[in-house]
Computed example of a mutant assay.
Amino acid sequence: MISADQLQQDRQLIIDWARRIIPIRAISPKSGGRGEKERADEICRILSEMGISNFTRYDVEDDTGTVRPNIVVRVGDRPRTLWVVAHIDTVPEGDLGLWTYPPFAATVEGDRIYGRGTNDNGHAVFLSLLLLQHARVGEMRYSLGIAFVSDEELGSTYGIQHLLKQGVFRKGDIIIVPDAGSESGLQIEVAEKSILWLKFTVKGKQWHASMPDNAVNALREASKLITELDRVLHEKFSASNTLFQPPVSTFEPTKHEKNVDNINTIPGTEVFYFDCRVLPVYDLDFVLDTVHDVVKEFEARSKARVTYEVIQKEQAPPPTPENSEVVKLLREAIRKRLGGEPAVIGIGGGTCAAFFRKEGMDAAVWGTEVPTTAHRPDEYVVIGHILQDRDVIEEILYGR
């Protein structure tokens, strides 16, 4: 049983780590950032201060020449390893006007720490550091492995996929990814939807806004295309699976690039993106065939021309079986520590777990968190949730 004094000390440790890590903008170059190197360097300093020197860096350059770091720590000498995977990259803050708290600062209010990346995935980073801080090597049932990885928000090419290629993980290891969950802590994610990101470019004819008859308004035509894609995709791929939350495929227009600088010019080019989260029952190639048909039918009615390209395409792997060892261990530990009966679920978000599943390695996504806070203004993490998750993971790591 952890004493009240120890809990208070651990709470302060989490706050101190957050104040060092969250202000470092670990954003992908493709989202306007400089990558995760500075944040990784800070995590390495924290590890060194904790007396941990046997960590390994797996740095790799991306296609922009930016260093994308990954840090792997192993503690113990057991034949099998319990892995906790935490991603250190984060998304941009978005509209600053929507924030009450400064996004790249760790603002503490009661049991909450506010800031971009505090939840996604600072929760797992702080949890991992706490597990390392209190590692009791002689009492472990498994060695403890921590992977701090890059590039999760944009596909994990330079993060967990890179580590898998390096042979860091072994079949038979226990793999937990604290990157989704519920406030009760009673949900274990075993399946994810397929992910398809598309970029559309609509070419019209730029002209003076007072003479629209001479123009082909790319904004208007793009708006029509967005509406048509939205309707057809939702109608055609309408299956439902209650394992997932939400239970249906989603097709969302998201990012929109700048067109013209002035009000009195009709734009000749419009660029927008779709984020599609598709139930595994559908083949993404079939979705792309449908997109192609919609574009061709649209061009037959419009004077605008359309091109599109695939930014990300990840067909969902088979789910982690409900009777797998990692799910059984989590269920037992959750029952003992939280006193409830956990349910298995699927989600629309993509996590590092999908890449383990593709390699035939069972992985579970679990954590106690507020699921509505990631990627939103005033993102926050609850300190008590991190402490509770530490108890559950330690039950697996040390329990008898």
Results as ranks from 00 to 15, higher is better:
Thr307Tyr: 02
Glu235Val: 06
Ala191Thr: 02
Gln9His: 14
Ser48Gln: 07
Val344Gln: 02
Asp389Ser: 11
Val216Leu: 06
Val67Arg: 06
Asn217Tyr: 06
Asp389Ile: 04
Lys336Val: 09
Leu233Tyr: 12
Arg19Asn: 12
Ile195Val: 11
Glu221Ile: 02
Glu252Trp: 04
Ile386Ser: 07
Arg20Gly: 08
Gly117Phe: 09
Thr320Lys: 09
His385Pro: 01
Pro23Val: 15
Gln245Asp: 14
Lys328Cys: 11
Ala105Leu: 03
Gly185Cys: 11
Pro253Cys: 05
Pro342Phe: 11
Glu235Ser: 13
Ser223Pro: 00
Glu235Arg: 15
Ala239Val: 08
Asp63Cys: 07
Asn241His: 13
Leu243Asp: 00
Gly346Thr: 09
Ile71Gln: 05
Asp111Gly: 04
Glu332Pro: 00
Val177Phe: 09
Arg277Leu: 07
Ser324Thr: 05
Lys193Glu: 05
Pro371Lys: 14
Glu341Phe: 10
Ile88Gly: 01
Ile52Arg: 02
Asp5Ser: 12
Ala4His: 10
Leu229Ala: 05
Gly268Lys: 11
Arg390Pro: 00
Leu233Cys: 08
Gly97Lys: 05
Val370Met: 09
Ile160Phe: 01
Ala218Gly: 02
Ala191Glu: 05
Asp62Pro: 03
Ser156Ala: 13
Pro29Glu: 09
Glu49Trp: 02
Ile88Lys: 03
Lys296Ile: 14
Asp151Lys: 04
Lys165Glu: 07
Val327His: 05
Pro212Leu: 11
Tyr101Gly: 00
Asn264Lys: 15
Asp230Cys: 03
Ile24Ser: 13
Thr66Ala: 11
Thr269Gln: 07
Glu221Asn: 01
Val326Gly: 01
Ile43Asn: 00
Ile160Asn: 00
Val278Cys: 05
